[in-house]
Each structure stands twice: as structure tokens, then as C-alpha cells.
Design a protein around this nucleic acid. Structure first.
Length: 598
RNA sequence: GAGGGCGUAGCGAAGCUGGUUAUCGCGACGGCCUGUCACGCCGUAGAUCGCGGGUUCGAGUCCCGUCGCUCUCGCCA
């Protein structure tokens, strides 16, 4: 231990400026770029804080020259030298440290770097599985450094804000009881109890409710959650949410707390001003106007109900669907500079609609003085004025219709068209458009199972006006449920909870859980509710998704240090992996491998 | 479970209706270079064109199968 291992930094690569002239400094970092002019040698040295130019002059000792010539990309080095001003004409205005450079007196190679498997900072051009395999290199890129810093700032700001509002951060277990509803559980076998399993939490839902019964009336947690379902760009097997719950609150208390919190956090982290109150849309209005329950409000392009006009038209396809209880909806794509409403363009929109179940996409072009042409225009003869005024269409616009027996399919299909138009017609405004979706239905019918189930989860409070008709008409019951939507993504979901044993049991029964099963699965919650539970409610914003949107990214992988790929594999550590027979024996497990396909 | 896209040197790409020795940039390696900052210049190595089969005189290119990655539907209270 007597000998010094390396010269330890006295400052960082982002800190020096002209005030440090003539100072002797030590920098530690990585070789970011290396420009060797023979007897004059420039090295851009990088660490988390920035980049500083190091110079090896022609008067350097042969030893120093030799070391400098050995340097390669991403070598980890220590540089001892003197800060000096750059000649006026050599100042680099693009660099934070561009006014100075460090004249090297000593360079120590702390470790060498093998030839890189890909170029750093070309991160986004490189295949993602390669970036994930060598994540430690990818993390050095300025993009990843910036995004993970923002993630840290975001979480830190939330912690400060909530702590200032008297919230306690309390951890809940990650080895818990498997509950039957929701997504598939990840499970952990129990060694001590053969055949028994823990489950990893899909969210801390029941525990946070029990914390309310325990008297911690303002709780939050930055909680890891696990759901064993197929991944997507905006979701993966494990993710992080801000889990939050409060006692003695009503819906609007939760909503305004979140508005205030995100207002503070966005200002502090990004210097962005959010509106004091976010727009509120009922679920029904959102579906009818935007075709989905997570509308991107950075552009307008509303959907219109066309059932009445469809009935008046001579288009048999539409009339049949409306007569059969179906729906016809339309939207009007505005004439846009540089965009031709060609057959190809319309076919691409139609393909987008078909993914969500539409059989086709009917269209009409709007000409001068309400003249209609092309597509299904001939079936609307005599209805030109009514159609054009209903959709507020102008000359050069394109009207698009979707008809479907199923309301949700109709909405979703045309919503996909709306989204594509938003991009193709460049209608999307910059910025952050939050909105609340409220008044969700409490139940939806499970066709395959032939019973009702909770649209969100079974612990949400029905709105009081439906308490007498829960059983007789579950389909029309609205709950005290709310989602927060940002730029077309669902970023938070919450509700006021049930805190009454009898009401909770009624919900279980409607969702096909008899009293015995409910007792077996959720007995601990029902038990807790026998001991003076407070009225309570909460919400859970998704951290990954929010940070992704703040970074203007479209994949949460970009804001997670070590993500899994879409197949649930981590290419770096190669998980999941097989267990030794010994481990399996300890856990009392026998693997039942699937038979290979014929 | 289903559909679309991609797979050519370490990385990113080009390669047209099949036709000599498969190009280009970055990177690697060697050399030259006193003011660069994506330094420049000269040179060298590096590719079973994902894998298997087929059609053809001839396949990176066409066909079939398969694997991997990726986007999406289903799924995700």
C-alpha cells in the first residue's frame, strides 16, 4: 500500500477555464479523441463532467512522447500538467473548456482498452443488441450520460418535493403472495416450503393500502415492478414507478397534488413551465373525440360520429353496420403543403387502420364549393354540405371514415389513422401536453371467460351514484379512476380505493371471485379493512416512461441503465439462464421442457 | 400465438431487371506530419454476404425453410 497506485485527480474534465491559468492539475479520464501530429499531440480527455484538451508539446521528454504515442481510444489515463490559455485563434467556442488546455508533464496509462466493438456516441446508429451486450461502453456515450443524469434529477426532485409535503418514503416487500388478477406474475420458488412460491410485485398496490390502514397517511416509494408479459418500446418486464398513496383524500386532491408536483419537477429539472391545471377529459369523451384513452393532444384532428349521416347516405356497407348497432366515425385531414393525398398515401393510412381491426378505410376528397370526389363520394350525393360543415372541411382536405360493429375497434382504428396523420402531416407541436382521463368504466366484460372483470383493478371505488346498480348493470358503472396522459402515452394511473369490506366483497363477486377464493387470495386486505381503515386513494406514475418522453425518446431502454431486449433477454449477462441440478434440487423443482414442434 | 422490417469486414452502409477479383465511410494495424479539435496524408490487413436447401452455365441478388434482432397486433388490472 506504500506505493501510490495512480495520480488522483484534483479536478474534473469539465471544470477548468481561463481563471485556472498556470495551475498544476491532475485529470483522470478516458481518451475521447487522439490527434497525433508527430511531435505535437492533442488528446481530448473525457469524464462524466466534460472534455478537456491535453497537449503533449514537442519539448516533451522522450518518455512522455512514447506514452502519448501508445494511447488509443478509451484508454483510461491520468494526466498531470499545467493549465494554460490557448492562443486566441485556437479557442474552441463549442467546448465548455475551449479557452484552455492542459500541457501534459506526465501521462499514466491506468488501463488499456481493446479495439471497440462499435463507435461510441454513434450509439443510436448501432444495433441495439450490440449496445446492450457492451452496455458499459454504451453508457460512456454522452447521450446515455445525459439521459441517466436527467433520470436522477427527476427522481431526486420528486423525492424532495414529496418529502417537503410530509410524505414518507417506505419500502414494501418484493417477495409477496401471488394474486390472481392482472398480468402474469414472476414467481420465486421457496426452498423451505416445497411447492410454494413467492411472486414479485406487479405493483405495491395492496401493501400501500395497508400502510394507509397502518396510519402512514402520506406514503410514496420509487418502486420496481415486475410483469411477465411481452415487451414493447414503452414497456419491459421490470420497470420503475413512483407509487403514492394518501388517506382522507378525494379524487381532486390526488390530481392537484400531481399537477403541483410535476409543475415543480419540470421547472426544476428542465426549466419547463407546465400549466397550473391539466386538461380533464372523461373516458367517453376521449374515446369519442380521439378514439383512444391516451390521446396525443399536441395536435387536434378530432374524430366525429357519422352514424346519422351514414344512415342518410346510399352507402350500403355503412348503413348495414349502423343498422346492426355498429358505428361510423370520420376525421378530416387538412390540406398540407408538400403532402399529396395519393392512392399510396391513403393505402398506408388504411394499413394503419387495419392493424386495429378495421376492414377498410373509406375516403372522400373535398373540392371547391363543397364538391366531393373519389372514394365513396358518390354515395353522399345531396349530403355534401352537411358532411363538409359537420367536419369543418375545406377545399383540398381528405375525409376518412372507419365503420365497425364494435365501438372500441372503430375508435382504435381511426385513432391509428389520426396518429399517423399527426406524424405525416407534421401536425405535432413541440412540448408537453398533459391531460387527465377520468370517469373510467369500473368493469369490462371478458368474452372468453364469460364474466365481468375490473377494467383497472378490483380495489377502485365505484362512483356513489352506481352503488345500487353494481350487480344489475356492471357495464355502466363508472369508477373514481384516473389516468394521466402525456403526449399520447399513459404515464400514470390511480384511483380512490374501496375501504369497506362489504363493498370490496361485492366487487370480488362481480369479478367472479366467490367469498372463499377472495378470502384465500385477499384475506389479509379484507382483514385489515375490519380495523378502522381510512378513506384513501393514490396514483402511480411510470418513471421510465416519463423520463423517456422528457428525453424525446421512443424506447424506455434509452433511459434504463441495463434494460432487457424485446425477448426479455439481457445480452450482457445472458439472463435468463439455466440452473444447476443442485439448485433445482434445493428448490424441489423438476423442469418440464416443452416438446419440440413437429 | 400472429404480421411487417432488417441481417453484406469490428461498426455503419452501397451492391439496379442474376454476370469478371463484392464497393464506400468509420475503426484496427504500420508510416509521415508543430496548432489540431470528426486533424490531414500514404500504406496494410480484415467478408464462409446470418445458417441450410433449391432454381440456374452462373446467386449477396430469385425461391423454400430456419435462426437472430427489431417494430406492431394479441397480451400488458
Amino acid at each position: 500500500m506504500a506505493e501510490e497506485l495512480f495520480s488522483q485527480r484534483t479536478t474534473t474534465c469539465g471544470a477548468l477555464n481561463k481563471d485556472d491559468n498556470n495551475k498544476k492539475v491532475v485529470l483522470n479520464g478516458w481518451v475521447h479523441r487522439d490527434r497525433n501530429h508527430g511531435s505535437l499531440h492533442f488528446i481530448n480527455l473525457r469524464d462524466r463532467y466534460g472534455i478537456t484538451q491535453v497537449v503533449v508539446d514537442d519539448d516533451a521528454s522522450p518518455e512522455l512522447q512514447g506514452t502519448a504515442n501508445e494511447l488509443r481510444m478509451e484508454f483510461c489515463i491520468a494526466v498531470t500538467g499545467i493549465v494554460r490559455l490557448r492562443p486566441d485563434s485556437m479557442v474552441n467556442a463549442d467546448m465548455a473548456t475551449g479557452e484552455i488546455e492542459v500541457k501534459a508533464e506526465k501521462i499514466e496509462i491506468l488501463s488499456r482498452c481493446a479495439p471497440l466493438p462499435f463507435q461510441l456516441d454513434d450509439g443510436l446508429e448501432t444495433r441495439e443488441d450490440l449496445r446492450l451486450k457492451y452496455r458499459y461502453l454504451d453508457l460512456r456515450s454522452q447521450g446515455m450520460q445525459k439521459r441517466l443524469k436527467l433520470r436522477h434529477d427527476f427522481i431526486f426532485s420528486i423525492r424532495k418535493y414529496l418529502s417537503g409535503k410530509d410524505f414518507y418514503e417506505i419500502e414494501t416487500p418484493t417477495l409477496i403472495k401471488s394474486t390472481p388478477e392482472g398480468a402474469r406474475d414472476f414467481v420465486v420458488p421457496s426452498r423451505l416450503y416445497p411447492g410454494k412460491f413467492y411472486a414479485l410485485p406487479q405493483s405495491p398496490q395492496l401493501f400501500k393500502q395497508i400502510l394507509m390502514v397502518g396510519g402512514f397517511d402520506k406514503y410514496f416509494q420509487i418502486a420496481r415492478c415486475y410483469r411477465d408479459e411481452d415487451a414493447r418500446g414503452d414497456r419491459q418486464l421490470e420497470f420503475t414507478q413512483l407509487d403514492l398513496e394518501m388517506s382522507f383524500v378525494k379524487r381532486d386532491d390526488v390530481l392537484s397534488l400531481m399537477e403541483d408536483m410535476f409543475g415543480h419537477v419540470f421547472k426544476e429539472v428542465m426549466d419547463v413551465d407546465l400549466p397550473v391545471r391539466f386538461r380533464r377529459l372523461t373516458y367517453a369523451d376521449s374515446m369519442n373525440t380521439y378514439g383512444c384513452d391516451k390521446p396525443d393532444l399536441r395536435f387536434d384532428l378530432p374524430l366525429s360520429d357519422m352514424n346519422e349521416l351514414a344512415q342518410k347516405s346510399s352507402f350500403k356497407t355503412f348503413k348495414d353496420i349502423v343498422s346492426a348497432g355498429g358505428y361510423v366515425k370520420a376525421l378530416c385531414a387538412p390540406k398540407t403543403e408538400g403532402v399529396e393525398f395519393s392512392r399510396k398515401f391513403i393505402t398506408e393510412l388504411e394499413d394503419a387502420a387495419k392493424i386495429y381491426g378495421a376492414k377498410g378505410l373509406a375516403w372522400i376528397k373535398v373540392g371547391a364549393e363543397n364538391a366531393l370526389s373519389g372514394g365513396v363520394s358518390k354515395f353522399f350525393a345531396g349530403l355534401e354540405e352537411e358532411l363538409v360543415s359537420k367536419l369543418e372541411a375545406n377545399e383540398g382536405d381528405l375525409i376518412l371514415f372507419v365503420a365497425h360493429e364494435n365501438w372500441k375497434r372503430c375508435c382504435a382504428s381511426l385513432s391509428a389513422v389520426r396518429s399517423k396523420l399527426g406524424k405525416d402531416l407534421k401536425l405535432i407541436r413541440k412540448g408537453f401536453e398533459f391531460c387527465w382521463i377520468i370517469d373510467f368504466p369500473l368493469f369490462e366484460y371478458n368474452e372468453t371467460g364469460g364474466h365481468w372483470e375490473a377494467a383497472h383493478h378490483m380495489f377502485s371505488m365505484p362512483q356513489s351514484q352506481y352503488l345500487d346498480t353494481l350487480e344489475s348493470d356492471p357495464g355502466s358503472v363508472k369508477g373514481d379512476l384516473y389516468d394521466l396522459v402525456l403526449n399520447g402515452y399513459e404515464v400514470a394511473s390511480g384511483s380512490i380505493r374501496i375501504h369497506d369490506v362489504e363493498l370490496q366483497k361485492r366487487i370480488f363477486r362481480i369479478c367472479n371471485f366467490d367469498d372463499e377464493t377472495a378470502e384465500d387470495r385477499f384475506g389479509f386486505l379484507l382483514n385489515a379493512f375490519r380495523y378502522g381503515p381510512p378513506p384513501h386513494g393514490g396514483i402511480a406514475p411510470g418513471i421510465d416512461r416519463m423520463v423517456m418522453i422528457m428525453c424525446e425518446e421512443t424506447s424506455i431502454h434509452e433511459v434504463i441503465a441495463f434494460p432487457k431486449n424485446t425477448a426479455g433477454i439481457s445480452p450482457m449477462d445472458d439472463s435468463p439462464s439455466f440452473l444447476d441440478q443442485e439448485q433445482l434440487d434445493d428448490l424441489h423443482l423438476t423442469i418440464n421442457y416443452p416438446k419440440p414442434k413437429e
